[in-house]
Measured scan of single mutants.
Amino acid sequence: NQASVVANQLIPINTALTLVMMRSEVVTPVGIPAEDIPRLVSMQVNRAVPLGTTLMPDMVRGYA
């Protein structure tokens, strides 16, 4: 089972991601792999991401 990136807090739209906003968790469906967390830092979300939501590739500008 692969860990995915999950929002550690509410992340408002257009917010640049920081390490404290994300955690890794084994979830279904699988989202962005946890090993990509360092790559996600400073990328912006293109929608509001509620606490506990799995980050999907289409939620992060420039990721996919």
Results as ranks from 00 to 15, higher is better:
residue 32 I to T: 02
residue 45 V to I: 10
residue 6 V to I: 08
residue 64 A to G: 12
residue 42 S to G: 15
residue 53 T to A: 13
residue 44 Q to W: 05
residue 51 L to E: 13
residue 54 T to L: 04
residue 5 V to L: 04
residue 28 T to N: 11
residue 1 N to R: 03
residue 48 A to V: 15
residue 37 I to S: 04
residue 52 G to S: 15
residue 12 P to Q: 12
residue 23 R to G: 08
residue 54 T to W: 02
residue 54 T to D: 01
residue 5 V to T: 07
residue 14 N to H: 09
residue 62 G to P: 05
residue 1 N to H: 06
residue 17 L to Q: 00
residue 38 P to V: 13
residue 31 G to P: 01
residue 31 G to Q: 03
residue 7 A to G: 03
residue 40 L to R: 00
residue 57 P to Q: 07
residue 11 I to N: 00
residue 32 I to G: 00
residue 5 V to N: 00
residue 24 S to A: 15
residue 19 L to V: 07
residue 17 L to N: 00
residue 23 R to Q: 09
residue 18 T to L: 06
residue 2 Q to L: 15
residue 12 P to G: 08
residue 47 R to G: 10
residue 40 L to N: 00
residue 60 V to A: 01
residue 23 R to T: 09
residue 45 V to E: 01
residue 47 R to T: 14
residue 29 P to A: 05
residue 24 S to R: 05
residue 60 V to H: 01
residue 7 A to V: 13
residue 55 L to W: 01
residue 17 L to R: 00
residue 34 A to G: 10
residue 1 N to M: 15
residue 31 G to F: 01
residue 25 E to T: 07
residue 9 Q to F: 12
residue 45 V to W: 00
residue 64 A to R: 10
residue 9 Q to Y: 13
residue 22 M to S: 01
residue 9 Q to W: 13
residue 6 V to N: 01
residue 30 V to R: 03
residue 35 E to Q: 09
residue 41 V to D: 03
residue 44 Q to S: 09
residue 50 P to I: 11
residue 37 I to A: 09
residue 50 P to T: 14
residue 4 S to H: 02
residue 63 Y to G: 05
residue 29 P to E: 14
residue 10 L to P: 14
residue 31 G to E: 00
residue 9 Q to K: 08
residue 36 D to K: 08
residue 62 G to T: 03
residue 25 E to Y: 04
residue 3 A to N: 06
residue 29 P to F: 05
residue 21 M to D: 06
residue 24 S to F: 08
residue 4 S to Y: 04
residue 22 M to E: 02
residue 37 I to Y: 03
residue 2 Q to D: 15
residue 46 N to Y: 12
residue 59 M to N: 05
residue 32 I to W: 02
residue 22 M to K: 00
residue 3 A to E: 15
residue 24 S to G: 14
residue 4 S to A: 03
residue 34 A to T: 09
residue 30 V to L: 13
residue 49 V to H: 02
residue 47 R to V: 13
residue 5 V to K: 01
residue 6 V to F: 02
residue 28 T to Q: 06
residue 1 N to E: 15
residue 3 A to W: 05
residue 47 R to F: 07
residue 58 D to R: 04
residue 24 S to Y: 08
residue 57 P to D: 09
residue 22 M to I: 13
residue 41 V to P: 03
residue 4 S to I: 02
residue 5 V to Q: 01
residue 63 Y to S: 05
residue 10 L to C: 15
residue 13 I to V: 11
residue 52 G to F: 07
residue 11 I to A: 01
residue 7 A to Y: 00
residue 22 M to A: 00
residue 15 T to F: 06
residue 22 M to R: 00
residue 16 A to W: 10
residue 36 D to Q: 09
residue 17 L to A: 00
residue 29 P to Q: 10
residue 40 L to E: 00
residue 18 T to S: 10
residue 26 V to Y: 11
residue 57 P to T: 04
residue 2 Q to I: 08
residue 20 V to F: 11
residue 1 N to V: 15
residue 18 T to E: 12
residue 57 P to F: 07
residue 10 L to N: 13
residue 57 P to H: 06
residue 26 V to C: 06
residue 54 T to E: 01
residue 13 I to E: 15
residue 20 V to K: 12
residue 38 P to Y: 06
residue 12 P to M: 14
residue 10 L to S: 15
residue 5 V to D: 01
residue 18 T to I: 05
residue 4 S to P: 00
residue 39 R to I: 09
residue 47 R to S: 15
residue 1 N to C: 06
residue 13 I to M: 12
residue 3 A to G: 13
residue 39 R to H: 08
residue 14 N to D: 14
residue 4 S to R: 02
residue 14 N to Q: 07
residue 46 N to C: 07
residue 23 R to D: 07
residue 61 R to E: 09
residue 24 S to P: 12
residue 46 N to K: 10
residue 43 M to A: 11
residue 47 R to L: 12
residue 42 S to T: 12
residue 53 T to E: 14
residue 43 M to F: 10
residue 46 N to F: 05
residue 4 S to N: 01
residue 64 A to D: 07
residue 7 A to L: 03
residue 29 P to M: 07
residue 51 L to N: 06
residue 46 N to W: 04
residue 18 T to D: 12
residue 34 A to R: 04
residue 39 R to A: 09
residue 35 E to I: 08
residue 48 A to Y: 08
residue 36 D to C: 08
residue 36 D to R: 06
residue 58 D to P: 08
residue 28 T to C: 13
residue 44 Q to E: 09
residue 13 I to H: 13
residue 39 R to W: 08
residue 39 R to K: 12
residue 61 R to P: 15
residue 29 P to I: 10
residue 7 A to S: 09
residue 2 Q to K: 04
residue 28 T to M: 05
residue 15 T to V: 10
residue 25 E to R: 03
residue 31 G to N: 00
residue 49 V to Y: 02
residue 48 A to E: 13
residue 22 M to V: 13
residue 49 V to T: 08
residue 13 I to P: 10
residue 34 A to Y: 06
residue 12 P to E: 07
